[in-house]
Nucleic acid binder design. Structure first.
Length: 364
DNA sequence: AACAGTCTCAACCGCCTCGAG
DNA sequence: TCTCGAGGCGGTTGAGACTGT
């Protein structure tokens, strides 16, 4: 209990690190590993504070750190997460592998914040600025993609390759504008197949997989929409988004959306924000509903045999989620959502590859 | 060419949380 | 249970690079 304080001492160097200092620090950490920062300066022969060594390593020297231009996808993730989390740079950084919180913070302050302001969006609330003449502009899904850098050409003239906020590969619900291909299957404007693919096999496994696919599809779309806007039910995203979905003119889309919402608590909370939340997270997830969803996930085929896969998948899902969904930690919810979406998306891909010819019958 | 203004981002500062003692 | 240091985090600073005049 008598530890000597860190960063106390005469003659400690400050300011920019030299190449020589970097080499010493890298060499020491390669040999001894990270940690014990208090003792590193002395052991590595550096006249630096341990904290300074840690920052230098974690923000700059660490080999896995990715540097350079942010992609448009990364920008969208930052904006979306900032809308729901605010200046929680470490939380945002966890969603951007190999990016440091410091780098994201700098990028926000020097690029994204200014760009939002120029687009008439308050970078704090992600809602239209008071002086903005176009009150419909927000970082909601329908608007985020239009937040390009065109109005900031002068601002970013030194960085000619400043990426625009382009739409990610998969669109959100509100952007799903389907036409019909030659064979009658719904096709998105970009030519990709609609996310309505389903198994037609009648086994319980197939139906379970259908539900997994439906879940994956809905979650994928919700997450995509979220990446274009904000995930918080308290922000303009959920209200504007649900409003748009409710006003969806395409009745078949609306039907699909409502059906998917039946299986998707995230979508439920987005579509029906007035639904009473028993436990309100900042993601707007009704955790009781989510638990109920999981409880019934794959369990409603009572007239069918429960084969091994069915049991396995169900048990896997329940074991993974039952312990995590009860958590009140925002970070844990992040991990849960991320894990779920990855898991489901993986299975959706499997389903598509396995049987992609029939998809209309179920759930619509 | 020189200067002033602007921008970028590495680094620092100070506060907070967690866990060891 | 309390104290205190390590580590983590967000806000801020300032040196250097860049641009405009």
């Amino acid at each position: 209990m008598s530890r000597k304080p860190c960063c106390v001492g005469e003659g400690l160097k400050k300011g920019a690190w030299t190449t020589e200092e970097d080499k010493k620090l890298i060499s020491y950490i390669h040999e001894h590993g990270e940690g014990g920062w208090r003792d590193i300066p002395q052991k590595a022969g550096l006249k630096r504070c341990g904290k300074s060594c840690r920052l230098r390593w974690t923000n700059y020297l660490k080999p896995e750190i990715k540097r350079g231009e942010f992609s448009s996808e990364e920008e969208q993730i930052i904006i979306m997460l900032h809308a729901s989390r605010g200046n929680k740079w470490s939380v945002i950084a966890r969603h951007l592998p190999r990016r440091t919180d410091n780098e994201i913070k700098n990028y926000w302050n020097t690029h994204l914040k200014k760009r939002l302001i120029e687009q008439g969006i308050d970078p704090v609330t992600h809602k239209p600025l008071a002086s903005n003449t176009n009150p419909t502009v927000t970082t909601s899904p329908e608007n985020l993609h239009s937040l390009d850098a065109s109005s900031s050409d002068k601002q970013y003239s030194r960085s000619s390759s400043m990426p625009s906020l382009s739409r990610p590969p998969s669109s959100g619900f509100n952007t799903v504008s389907e036409t019909t291909s030659n064979d009658g299957k719904p096709v998105h404007e970009d030519g990709s197949l609609s996310c309505k693919k389903r198994f037609k096999k009648s086994s319980s496994t197939s139906r379970l997989l259908n539900k997994v696919a439906a879940k994956a599809i809905s979650m994928k779309e919700v997450l995509s929409a979220s990446m274009e806007g904000t995930m918080s039910a308290n922000t303009s995203f959920s209200n504007g988004f649900s409003e748009q979905i409710r006003n969806e003119e395409d009745s078949s889309n609306a039907s699909l959306i409502n059906t998917l919402a039946e299986f998707d608590p995230f979508l439920q909370s987005t579509l029906y924000p007035e639904h009473e939340m028993n436990t309100t997270s900042d993601l707007g997830i009704d955790q009781d509903y989510f638990s109920h969803f999981l409880e019934n996930f794959g369990r409603d085929d009572h007239n069918e045999e429960h084969n091994m896969n069915h049991e396995y998948v169900h048990d896997l899902l329940m074991s993974d989620v039952s312990q995590e969904v009860s958590s009140t930690s925002v970070d844990d919810q992040d991990n849960t959502i991320e894990g779920w979406s990855n898991y489901l998306l993986d299975h959706a891909d499997f389903i598509y590859e396995t049987d992609s010819d029939s998809f209309e019958k179920h759930l619509i």
